[in-house]
């Protein structure tokens, strides 16, 4: 019997299983979920020879540790952090071969927020509606990691031997965590619910990442956006990157676990390409919105 698995030694502040998400079910009220930094997921998966859709770990701030029950190739990327195998420093951002029975320690992020950990063969928990992602809004997918939890791994492709062999990328370019978030935003569909002054505020004033941010939304501290129309909007469908403005006027940028419908007006939508950096922005990071067509 092959025991391809890892056991959780230290779960960390919030570590979840993530892949590229659960799309196609929004009409049933199912959030898309998936990793907040999908480019990092594709890259760590590529480093260990997995398809980009394989499930990985997403850590938050202080990493996690697992004990391997089999020899496995791993790669840690996303937020830069110390990596140790049985206490010895190991490489970050590239493939590392770990023997069975070793403790793989992903340390606290030196910069950024979320590290991604790929295992050869991927994390093989049962998929729900086509995805292994943990959805913290609706509770679909596996529970967040807890100490002593065992995570099964899939069978690696023959490229599991990538470290010894051919064709692996040894020096991929990793974007650094942002010192400032510049979010390109396309106005609408409800920009007419806001005053002209509010739209100028959005386009010109500085915001900061609030510590209340999570996988559901990037919450911001800064000037409130004044409404031109009072009242509530009938619930309507929401997209990834939607900049929703609740009654307090502080914009919230919807991230992977966002609700599928909502009743607060959406002043604009942030470009999907700019959202990966949001995953790595620590509280206090300056944020600017740049309107684009």
């Amino acid at each position: 019997m092959s025991d391809r698995a890892v056991a959780v030694v230290r779960a960390g502040a919030l570590t979840t299983v993530q892949d590229l998400g659960r799309t196609g079910h929004a009409h049933l009220g199912v959030p898309r979920s998936g990793a907040l930094d999908p480019a990092a997921v594709r890259l760590v998966n590529r480093l260990v020879g997995n398809p980009g859709t394989a499930a990985v770990l997403e850590t938050t701030v202080n990493g996690c540790a697992v004990r391997t029950r089999c020899a496995v190739t791993v790669a840690v990327g996303g937020a830069p952090c110390p990596v140790r195998v049985d206490g010895r420093p190991a490489a970050w951002g590239t493939a590392v071969r770990v023997a069975a029975g070793s403790v793989l320690e992903i340390g606290a992020a030196v910069r950024g927020v979320r590290a991604y950990v790929a295992f050869g063969g991927g994390i093989d928990v049962d998929p729900v509606l086509g995805s292994r992602s943990t959805d913290l809004l609706s509770g679909l997918g596996p529970a967040p990691l807890a100490d002593e939890m065992v995570l099964p791994l899939g069978q690696p492709t023959d490229t599991d031997e990538v470290v010894k062999g051919k064709g692996y990328v040894d020096a991929p370019p990793w974007p650094g965590p942002p010192d400032e978030l510049v979010l390109r935003v396309r106005l609408g569909p409800r920009e007419d619910w806001f005053t002209d002054a509010a739209l100028r505020t959005l386009a010109t004033r500085a915001y900061r990442v609030s510590p209340a941010s999570n996988r559901i939304g990037l919450r911001l501290e800064g000037p409130a956006l004044e409404r031109a129309l009072p009242g509530e909007l009938a619930s309507e469908g929401m997209v990834l990157g939607a900049v929703q403005v609740p009654p307090d006027g502080r914009p919230v940028v919807f991230l992977a676990d966002h609700p599928t419908t909502g009743g607060y007006p959406v002043v604009g939508v942030v470009r999907e390409a700019d959202l990966g950096a949001v995953a790595q922005a620590v509280p206090g990071t300056p944020v600017r919105f740049t309107p684009v067509r």
């Binding site: 799309t23 196609g24 009409h27 009938a234 309507e236 469908g237 997209v239 419908t261």
Partner: peptide, 15 residues
């Protein structure tokens, strides 16, 4: 399209 999301008085077509 990836998603068709009806709501009270709107339909969102995404992807």
């Amino acid at each position: 399209v990836r998603e068709i999301v009806p709501a009270a008085r709107t339909v969102l077509i995404d992807g």
